[in-house]
């Protein structure tokens, strides 16, 4: 009764829960679902656009490679994509051919509401604020905090342990050594009132569990 209702208590059945514990809101706009992999316990909130249909076109020569190359978005475990995000694989002309490149998002990544992601990859333990734009082929390494309303320009590489912000984004600091450490808060057991055990960049399993 006194559990932290950090997430709005939604009427039952607003999301579809998969076998591996992914929670996908029914109102999410997902196209090309076969090309999308969710790692398990990952949350896709309402109004999220996942453009799995924008995948690499198989070359006409060999059909065997088709199944492997049509992969477009993969999101790891315990990641949360908040409402209104657009996740869209990037494309560019390479050797005369325009190709969509698969996008990879790691574990325990939080993507704030209304962000647009066109990165090549986002590593684990990344916290992205609301209204961010990650332009095509940007790469976010591990343990990064992206402040709200940031625009990460195309092709930018954000090194590990940095805090970025601004338009265009620049590295404005480093996350502390304690980034993602819960500091004695229990990772299992869900400690009731005191135990909001998830922190930015930390293990988001409890946050995912609290979303219902």
């Amino acid at each position: 009764m006194s559990r932290p209702s950090a997430a709005r208590k939604a009427p039952k059945g607003e999301y579809i829960e998969t076998d591996s514990g992914n929670k996908v809101w029914r109102k999410a706009n997902i196209s090309g679902a076969p090309n999308i992999t969710l790692g398990g316990r990952t949350v896709i909130r309402e109004d999220v656009h996942l453009r799995g249909d924008l995948h690499r076109l198989s070359t006409t020569k060999e059909d065997g490679s088709k199944s492997s190359s049509s992969h477009s978005i993969s999101i790891g475990r315990c990641s949360v994509v908040a409402a209104g995000c657009v996740i869209k694989p990037p494309c560019r002309v390479s050797r005369g051919v325009l190709t969509y490149y698969p996008m990879k998002i790691g574990d325990n990544v939080f993507i704030g509401p209304n962000s647009t992601i066109q990165s090549a990859s986002i590593s684990s333990h990344v916290h992205i604020g609301e209204h961010c734009v990650l332009q095509p082929f940007s790469m976010v390494r591990e343990n990064v905090k992206i402040l709200p309303h940031t625009i990460v320009p195309a092709n930018m590489v954000i090194p590990s342990n940095s805090v970025v912000g601004g338009r265009p984004a620049r590295i404005i600091g480093e996350v502390g050594e304690g980034w993602g450490a819960a500091g004695g808060a229990s990772a299992a057991g869900g400690a009731g009132t005191g135990g909001e055990s998830w922190v930015e960049g930390g293990d988001l399993r409890e946050l995912v569990r609290s979303i219902r």
Partner: peptide, 15 residues
């Protein structure tokens, strides 16, 4: 514009 044309071409096949 060439790149744009190529993108249109790919999108016509994808969408």
């Amino acid at each position: 514009s060439k790149g744009h044309e190529k993108q249109l071409n790919v999108l016509q096949r994808l969408v």
